[in-house]
Simulated assay, not measured.
Amino acid sequence: MARFLLRLHDGQKTTPVVEPLDADDAEQAKVLAEIRLLLTNDYTHAHIYEGDRQVAELNRFRQGPNPQG
């Protein structure tokens, strides 16, 4: 299991809420982070980090690939 950090943002320029996230890999961390993001309306987007490297970014209002490319 790997340790990731989930940084939850409320859409404003405030300090994000940082939560530890344990997952088997980056893909599982992304799924778990998406669930966490959607649990409440408190956060607009999230960044997932493994160490110092950002591995994913999620946005509550943007789902799936951008149809305009």
Rank of each mutant, 00 (worst) to 15 (best):
P16T: 10
A26W: 01
T40L: 10
K13L: 11
P65Y: 07
L38S: 12
R7E: 10
A26Q: 08
D25I: 04
L37D: 02
G69R: 09
V17Q: 11
L8T: 01
V55A: 09
R53V: 15
D42E: 15
L5E: 11
L39K: 15
L6N: 01
L37R: 03
E57D: 06
T40W: 12
Q54P: 02
A26H: 03
V31M: 08
P16C: 15
L21M: 05
K30P: 02
H9T: 02
L5F: 14
R53T: 15
R53C: 14
P20A: 08
F4L: 05
I48M: 05
K13A: 12
T15P: 07
D24P: 08
L37Y: 06
P20E: 05
P65R: 09
V31N: 04
Q68S: 13
M1D: 04
L37E: 01
R36G: 04
K30W: 07
L21K: 00
D52Y: 13
V55F: 13
R62V: 13
D42Y: 11
E57P: 00
A26F: 01
I35D: 06
V55C: 10
D10S: 12
N66D: 15
H45K: 10
T44V: 07
Q63M: 12
I35K: 11
Q28R: 10
E57K: 13
L38K: 14
Q63E: 12
R62L: 15
E50M: 13
R3K: 15
E34D: 10
Q54N: 12
G51K: 07
R62S: 13
P67N: 04
L39N: 10
T44F: 08
T14S: 13
R62N: 12
L39R: 15
G11P: 01
D42L: 15
T15C: 08
L58P: 00
N66V: 04
F61Y: 15
E27S: 14
P16R: 07
G51V: 06
Q68V: 08
Q54V: 06
I35N: 05
L58E: 01
D10C: 12
R53K: 15
E19T: 08
A33I: 00
V55S: 09
R60V: 03
H9M: 05
G69Y: 08
Y43D: 01
Q68Y: 13
G51L: 07
Q28I: 06
G51S: 08
A56M: 09
H9V: 02
A46T: 05
A33H: 02
Y43N: 03
R62M: 12
E19W: 07
G64W: 08
Q68P: 00
P20H: 03
F4V: 00
R7L: 11
Q54G: 07
A23I: 03
D42N: 14
T40V: 08
A2E: 09
G69H: 08
R7D: 09
G69L: 13
G64V: 07
